[in-house]
Design a protein around this nucleic acid. Structure first.
Lengths: 261, 261
DNA sequence: TCCGGTTGTCTAGACAATTAGACAAGCGAG
DNA sequence: CTCGCTTGTCTAATTGTCTAGACAACCGGA
């Protein structure tokens, strides 16, 4: 099936909820051209559309919108470099970069992960501070709430393209010079080693999906409002003691998380 | 930090790019009230807002929008049952159900997974057909493209609430009576056992995020346009031979995928 | 009872999104 | 070249979104 054929009544803003105590609420907050763009993007993503898009008139009919709306959707995709329209010929998929397969396992190391795929790892630290542990983080790190933690926020890149923004918490008492070591080495593994931690491994990873916030969008240099894969992880030392709580927000258009059993 | 304080210029739809060779592309296709709603949702999600929301006037200022826009956002959240506005008192978070932690490992079994969390598993088959393997699926199942496959689409529920839509492919020659067995038993594990497969395990899982398509939204009975976590997996028999390719689309608001190492 | 704070409702205007129809411009095949 | 098909451009009208301001209704405490 080529593209989902939206029924007009469905994609249209339904006028329900009117009698519900006076609320304006009508549409779903996403414009039609955006929906169409997402639909086309998905069709390209899963290979339903390989090379050439159906003509605008046909797309308009399939999605149940006006041709101008389709054009706007295509313009957005073209601005992202995903398709390329040629007058008189058609609109063509210009093979976008495939998603980076970020493998997560017991020994997840950012740099190694990227180098294994011939991508150049990079990144920079955004902020570092010492903060008291909130209840949730304390539970993850198996410490008392209020304990001093390093909170380190950073950006990670592949071939210079922002891939994720990560926030990490470390027990400050155990790793006093951590931030300096992170700045100096640029590597979590190496910085922890300097602080006396020979090795660590990942205990668990919890994955959810969210919309890209405006703040993250800036960091990830994402034009369209995209999605993020949120990976919440805990890394432990060899005795099983937590050494790092990690929340990584991966750019969903550029990343795929891989778990092997 | 309570809520992201969007600068007016940022959240506003910028009117640049008009003269850029005739592309309509301007805004991001997401309305402001939707952004505000997502912002509040996120703040509720990560615990920044526990019980009561700041007053509408304050929210309006923080997000840099008019109070009416905030009201519309809140109306949308209220329609989803996430908050509850009380005239004269304030707007309160009405504790939504926590995400179901769906654990994925070598032995991922839907029913066991849910029962382990005291949730009642359910579901139904949507469609079943025999289709020729496309290149991608053939690669996953380690068979020749064009090979006959069972393609089974189904919905899975927790306590009667739709959790995911899944599409599975099985080699038809190896499991001739599979669909009948699935219909009869309602269990993949049991159906495969009847077809002579004693046990299977998961080889790998690849996770991405997408927007909920209109078709999926209907199946997952989601009012707002939500997100899905897409898990692409391969299950193999004990000799390592693929027996099932699986694409599961989890409702992102209701699910969290858990991987232990 | 009064008063400050909060949500609910209404009007009006500016601007963006969408539809509709028409036509120009370019491509490729017969 | 001519014809059919496709993308590019334009105008006009309609509908949706957002802002602005004002006021009503309601709650809780002083």
């Amino acid at each position: 099936m080529l593209f989902y054929i939206a029924k007009r009544d469905r994609i249209m803003t339904p006028a329900r909820l009117w009698s519900l105590g006076g609320m304006d609420a009508v549409g779903d907050g996403v414009t039609r051209w955006r929906r169409v763009a997402d639909g086309i993007r998905a069709a390209i993503g899963d290979g339903t559309v390989a090379d050439r898009l159906p003509p605008e008139a046909e797309l308009a009919e399939r999605f149940g919108v006006n041709r101008h709306t389709v054009r706007r959707a295509i313009a957005a995709l073209a601005a992202d470099g995903l398709v390329r329209a040629e007058r008189g010929r058609g609109t063509f998929v210009s093979g976008g970069a495939p998603r980076l397969a970020y493998e997560i396992g017991p020994r997840t190391r950012f740099s190694e992960n990227l180098l294994a795929q011939a991508r150049r790892p990079g990144g920079r630290m955004l902020r570092a501070a010492i903060v008291p542990a909130d209840a949730e983080t304390a539970a993850l790190l198996d410490c008392a709430p209020g304990t001093d933690l390093h909170r380190v926020e950073s950006i990670r890149e592949a071939d210079g393209v922002p891939l994720s923004v990560a926030t990490a918490w470390y027990p400050a008492a155990r790793f006093p010079g951590l931030v300096a070591a992170l700045v100096e080495t640029g590597s979590v593994t190496e910085a922890l080693r300097r602080e006396g931690l020979a090795d660590y491994r990942r205990r668990e990873t919890r994955v959810t999906a969210e919309r890209l916030s405006a703040a993250d969008a800036e960091h990830l240099s994402s034009s369209a409002d995209g999605l993020v894969l949120v990976a919440r992880a805990v890394n432990v030392d060899l005795s099983g003691r937590p050494v790092q709580a990690l929340v990584t927000r991966f750019h969903a258009d550029r990343t795929e998380l891989v778990f092997r059993s």
